[in-house]
């Protein structure tokens, strides 16, 4: 069994897509935010790997070809933003203030909760860059002396949380303006939140894309101040 799977990269690709489609079908049927396709796919793939005793390396031989599309996809986030550039220019002040306050809120709320939960300093540093895109987050964690695996985990939990509950949170707190929704999704939950924002609407997607770049760069500058 293992050799068969090791000999084809398409196993990892197929299982990822199939489980994702199952997630989409479940979501369409029951309309529950928790039945999030990323979350369902993630859990089902882990279930399959565990039940059939397949190791991650075998899976990721194919999985990495899906991950590798993430860099060009992030580059393409400039396309929806370009289409809404007029909106950005018109509301420049509000957008910059919104993202900046979001970034400061992220860093200071992590600081506060680390004190409340009496968290180890090393753990705190590793969680600090959790609201930004993985590539920048890992870099910051390294720079500050954090544990990379913890940083990756925190970024993942954050992104999936934003993707799963973002829409409901915006509804509950009556955040309705598409610019605000987009900035909220992107600043809090980076690219994973943005993939959701793109599903909600064009403006939401464009503003969320913008947040990834600006929040990421701002965090590079501000995170060292929270040590």
């Amino acid at each position: 069994m293992k050799e068969v799977l090791n000999n084809s990269i398409y196993f990892g690709i197929a299982i990822t897509l199939i489980t994702y489609i199952i997630g989409m079908k479940l979501k369409n049927k029951f309309k529950l935010a928790i039945l999030n396709p990323i979350l369902i796919s993630f859990l089902l793939v882990i279930l399959v790997l565990t039940v059939f005793n397949i190791d991650y390396e075998s899976y990721n031989q194919g999985g990495k070809y899906i991950s590798f599309l993430l860099t060009p996809a992030t580059v393409c986030l400039a396309i929806p933003l370009y289409q809404q550039l007029g909106l950005l220019k018109k509301n420049f002040k509000a957008i910059i203030i919104g993202i900046s306050i979001g970034v400061v809120t992220s860093l200071s709320s992590i600081f506060l909760f680390s004190i409340i939960l009496n968290l180890d300093h090393l753990l705190y540093i590793s969680i600090l860059p959790k609201s930004i895109t993985t590539a920048i987050g890992i870099g910051i964690s390294e720079e500050l002396g954090g544990i990379q695996t913890i940083t990756i985990l925190s970024i993942l939990i954050t992104g999936i949380t934003g993707n799963v509950i973002g829409e409901s949170i915006c509804k509950i707190f009556k955040i309705k303006n598409p610019i605000s929704v987009g900035l909220a999704m992107g600043t809090s939950a980076h690219a994973v939140g943005t993939s959701k924002a793109l599903e909600i609407g064009e403006i939401e997607g464009a503003m969320s894309s913008l947040s990834i770049a600006i929040a990421g760069l701002l965090t590079v500058v501000l995170a060292p101040l929270f040590l």
Binding site: T105, I127, I157, G162, S180, L183
Partner: peptide, 24 residues
């Protein structure tokens, strides 16, 4: 880790959205 990530994500989302709404 789970607790901090989920709670702070919600806080950042609400604060960013509300502040942007207000300035807009």
């Amino acid at each position: 880790i789970f607790l901090i990530c989920v709670v702070t994500t919600v806080i950042v989302m609400v604060v960013t959205g509300k502040v942007t709404d207000l300035v807009l």
